Every structure is written in C-alpha cells, then in structure tokens.
Simulated scan of single mutants.
Amino acid sequence: MTDEYTTTLHDWAGGTAALERLCEAFYRRVRADDLLAPLFAAMPPDHPRHVAMWLAEVFGGPARYTAERGGYPTMLRHHLGKAITEPQRRRWVNLMMDAADEVGLPADPEFRAAFAGYLEWGTRLALANSQPGAEPVRDAPVPRWGWGVAPPYRP
C-alpha cells in the first residue's frame, strides 16, 4: 500500500468495485429523477459500468476506458448536442454526492473535496460541450484527478 501522499483517489475510494457500486446507485436515482430521467431515457444497461470505468481512470485507476471505450473522444461524443442545462448539471452533481453517501465512499473531507472538485469541473465541461454550436477540443487525454493541495490526513 502506498502512503497517504501517493494513494490514488481510485484506491482511496475502494477501487473500481466501489466506483461501480457508486454508478449503479447513482443511475438508479437518475432513472427516478424528473429532471434527469429524460436526458438518460436511451441509456443502455451497461452505461453505469462505463461511467465507473471512466471515473476509475480519472481517479488514477486502470486506463480501461481509454483501452476499451476510446478515451476522451468517446466521452465527448456522448455529450455533444445534448444541450444540458445548469439545473440538470447541478442535479447530476447532487445525485452523485448522494450516491457516494449511499454506497459508503470515504467521507473524509480531503477525499470528498477532491471528488466534488472533479464532479464540478467535469460537469461544467460537459455542460459547455453539450451546447448547440459548441466547438470543444475533440482529442484530449482522459484527465487525471488527484488530491490537489490537501492530501488525506491519517493520525
């Protein structure tokens, strides 16, 4: 095991299995949500697993989303033309944070700050990239999200 300064967010969260549980709980909430359900009406059954693969890679886990799904260009294509609204973006973040609580992702402030930071950053990009006429960068690497300035503290 690495120390608290080099442990990835992926490992701290509990690995890919924890992120899969997170995405399953999250998308159960999405399907029942009046604001988000229409946006995800055509969601294939394996969508939660694919989002978990994305998050795992972003948080320092295996690069399976890139290897198996095509990386950033694939994720971008899923958002183009969706015209996501600010209320939908905020609801997405809120439901993801609720799902994190439900499945028991670490609740320490350092992890949750990094986790919430990525959700805010990523959803703001998705919102911008989803707008009609948007011209996003089409080929970029999957982002790698870390602890920022506050690594986890272990007494």
Rank of each mutant, 00 (worst) to 15 (best):
H10W: 13
W12P: 04
A13H: 03
G14Q: 04
G14F: 03
T16Q: 07
A18W: 04
L19K: 01
E20N: 02
E20Y: 03
E20G: 00
R21N: 10
E24P: 00
F26D: 02
R28G: 03
R28M: 05
R28Y: 05
V30W: 08
A32Y: 07
A32W: 03
A32P: 08
D34F: 08
L35P: 14
L36E: 12
L39I: 12
A41M: 11
A41D: 15
M43P: 04
P44I: 01
P44A: 10
P44H: 14
P45K: 00
H47R: 11
P48F: 02
P48I: 01
R49T: 00
R49G: 07
H50M: 12
V51H: 01
A52L: 01
A52V: 00
A56L: 05
A56P: 12
G60S: 09
G60E: 13
P62T: 01
P62Y: 00
A63Y: 01
A63K: 09
R64I: 02
R64M: 01
R64S: 08
Y65P: 03
T66L: 04
T66N: 01
T66R: 00
A67N: 11
G71I: 01
G71N: 01
Y72F: 15
P73G: 05
M75T: 09
L76W: 07
H79A: 02
T85G: 07
T85F: 03
P87C: 04
R89N: 07
R89L: 14
R90Y: 08
R91I: 04
R91Q: 13
W92Y: 15
V93K: 12
V93W: 11
N94M: 13
M96W: 06
M97N: 13
A99Y: 08
D101A: 15
E102A: 15
G104V: 06
P106W: 03
P106K: 02
P106I: 00
P106Q: 05
A107D: 15
A107N: 09
D108L: 08
D108M: 08
E110H: 15
F111E: 11
A113N: 14
A113G: 12
F115S: 04
A116R: 14
E120Y: 10
W121A: 14
T123I: 02
L125N: 14
L125I: 11
L127G: 03
A128I: 06
N129T: 05
Q131H: 03
Q131D: 09
P132D: 11
G133V: 04
G133P: 12
V137F: 07
V137T: 14
